[in-house]
Design a protein around this nucleic acid. Structure first.
Length: 563
RNA sequence: UGGGGGGUCGGAUAAGGGUAAUCCGGCAGACUUUGGAUCUGCACAUCGAGGUUCGAGUCCUCGCCCCCCAGCCA
């Protein structure tokens, strides 16, 4: 979007930013995306990135990437690397502006000393439990710490010794001296620094005192010249605290604007829950294709374009909301419909023998690679006497409105011939294992010279030429729209969908797929979009179903079952 | 019973005193060598009660409901 020539409605943040520019409160726009490197990025972060990077770009400004790495015990380089990869993959660029809160540790420490000197911070010897006790409750004010009125000299000395490593973890904290009776609990003498003797993934053992996020975030923004600090709703209560620090330090203040974080139906978007899914073995890792992580979506077959389109469509507001996962799926289908090459693949094969087709004969039929994109060209697919078709495409006793194959019925084999079912072969259990058919040589390519019509076109592969494959059919990870909707005492794991993964072996795909590369995405005609998984090895293809095609017949069947 | 936010079709967003619109989903139909795509149509909404006004989703008052906050997490 370029501002001015668009009549698209602006969300409240863009309106606010534009007003700031017009009113001269800021002369430029500089935002930041501030992940903590303690987990993988998910679709909720994609929304935040689209806002942070997107708004900066629209207003001709810049967006920094800053890792909020103030807690060494939770963070790891594994995450700082995966996060950067995911941001780039999504299509955003921080150029040379990669920062870390840990870059500012020395400066933050100076800020702390400044506040001590001004009598606005003190070293407190209360234990964690005591601090909690003294904090009061939501409805009752807290009590002042007995250490609150130490002299500036004592505080300076004690804080220096905290930094020097003289005291064990948890024995003391540095606190801001604000208001123990504030209705806003964040203002009841919040902790600024805590003692943690741990190795930080970037600063190593240089520090044993680490700033709290609240003491680092606003100042980091200020140091970087951030004008608009866009974040989620839960930080609304923290804004007065950030402003208190910034004012007490007399440094630049960005404007913080909060928006509602993303929720998507049938999945969870909290790092804590995602971590439990991984550690509990409910999924196969952060990049399991069922995960809403960017790495999971990528492996599933989602494109950056589809994800960004989704983020554009969900809008930005302050209302708590739950977006229908069907919208995400729609965005993927829409993107892939334009771009994904079409191929034929049979997931649950049923053998077909064409009685009147000469044994040993092979024809190459021409197939369109993408009807939505003529420039994608055509390819050739081998056809012969023995084929596989989809089990679902045959019914011995077809229900009403079922147009596909059945005894005596004629259908079209896509790009090939009309085919008529003349016999059914069953095994000892009475299950259909093979169809005996005849083809009409005059219908090559799929049109009948006599003008007769068939109601259905089905896909197929030539048994002698097809390539074997495994296919993983993914479904929603949870059975409930809101996985947290559980009875007392239970948690979201109760709502896991036991059928979120179905592995199909014995699938057959057309030979053109033999050399495809992991990450390639195809439309298997009439079925859905499938992405070649990195697990694939030569001669052993593994496809992940990203999303199925819309299925009109499934809907009819469902209606028939109900009605 | 403190403090901070929020309530518009089933879901998500618009409308900033003047026709409640758009997208997803649902339903129905057209078309179709993918029961895909595309196209057409239909249904469904301003939390409640007062008030101001020619006119209120929008302004005022009083309610109701929902979310967040009591980490030395972010």
């Amino acid at each position: 979007m370029t501002l001015g020539d668009s009549n698209q409605p602006m969300d409240f943040i863009r309106v606010a930013v534009m007003d700031d520019l017009k009113a001269g409160r800021y002369s430029r726009v500089h935002t930041r995306f501030p992940p903590e490197p303690n987990g993988y990025l998910h679709i909720g972060h994609a929304k935040a990135m689209c806002i942070d990077f997107g708004i900066a770009a629209e207003f001709g400004g810049q967006c920094n990437l800053r890792f909020d790495d103030t807690n060494p015990v939770k963070e790891d380089v594994e995450y700082v690397e995966s996060i950067q990869q995911d941001i780039r993959w999504l299509g955003f660029d921080w150029e040379d502006r990669l920062y870390y809160a840990s870059d500012y540790f020395e400066r933050l420490c100076e800020y702390a000393v400044t506040l001590i000197t001004k009598g606005k911070a003190y070293v407190c010897d209360l234990s964690a439990d005591d601090i909690r006790e003294y904090r009061g409750t939501l409805t009752e004010p807290g009590k002042e710490s007995p250490y609150r009125n130490r002299t500036v000299e004592d505080n300076l000395d004690l804080f220096a010794r905290m930094r020097a490593g003289e005291f064990p973890d948890g024995s003391r904290t540095l606190r801001a001296k604000i208001d123990m009776a504030s209705g806003n609990i964040n203002l009841r003498d919040p902790v600024m620094y805590r003692i943690i003797h741990a190795t930080h993934h970037r600063t190593g053992d240089a520090w044993c005192v680490y700033p709290m996020y609240d003491f680092a975030h606003g100042q980091s923004d200020s140091i970087e010249g951030i004008t608009h600090s866009l974040c989620s709703l839960e930080y609304e209560d923290h804004r007065p605290l950030y402003n208190w620090y910034l004012d007490a330090l007399d440094i630049d203040r960005p404007r913080q604007i909060e928006f509602a974080r993303l929720n998507v139906s049938f999945t969870v978007l909290s790092k804590r829950k995602l971590l439990r899914l991984v550690q509990g073995g409910h999924v196969k890792g952060w990049d399991d294709p069922r995960m809403p992580t960017l790495s999971g979506l990528r492996r599933r077959g989602y494109t950056p374009e589809a994800i960004r389109d989704f983020c554009d469509r969900i809008g930005v507001a302050k209302k708590d909301s739950m977006v229908d996962i069907a919208l995400l799926e729609h965005c993927l289908r829409e993107d892939l419909n334009k771009r994904a090459p079409r191929v034929m693949g049979v997931l649950k094969p049923l053998r077909v023998v064409i009685e009147n087709y000469p044994e040993g004969r092979v024809e190459e039929v021409a197939a369109v690679n993408n009807p939505e994109d003529p420039s994608a060209g055509t390819r050739t697919v081998p056809f012969s006497r023995v084929l596989y078709i989809e089990q679902d495409d045959f019914r011995e006793n077809p229900p009403p409105k079922y147009y596909r194959f059945a005894p005596g019925r004629e259908v079209r084999l896509r790009y090939a011939y009309f085919l008529k079912c003349v016999g059914v072969v069953k095994d000892a259990q009475g299950d259909v294992v093979e169809l005996t058919c005849t083809y009409d040589p005059a219908t090559r390519g799929g049109d009948a010279p006599d003008g007769r019509k068939v109601k259905a076109t089905i896909h197929w592969v030539s048994a002698a030429h097809a390539v074997p494959a495994r296919v993983r059919l993914y479904d929603r990870l949870f059975v409930k729209e809101d996985p947290d909707d559980v009875d007392g005492g239970q948690d979201f794991l109760e709502n896991l969908n036991p059928d979120s993964l179905e592995v199909l072996t014995g699938c057959w795909v057309e030979p053109s797929l033999a050399e495809s590369k992991p990450g390639s995405i195809y439309q298997f005609e009439r079925q859905g979009y499938f992405c070649l998984d990195p697990d694939a090895a030569k001669g052993s293809l593994v496809f992940n179903r990203a999303v199925s095609l819309k299925d009109q017949w499934a809907r009819i069947e469902r209606a028939q079952r109900v009605g």
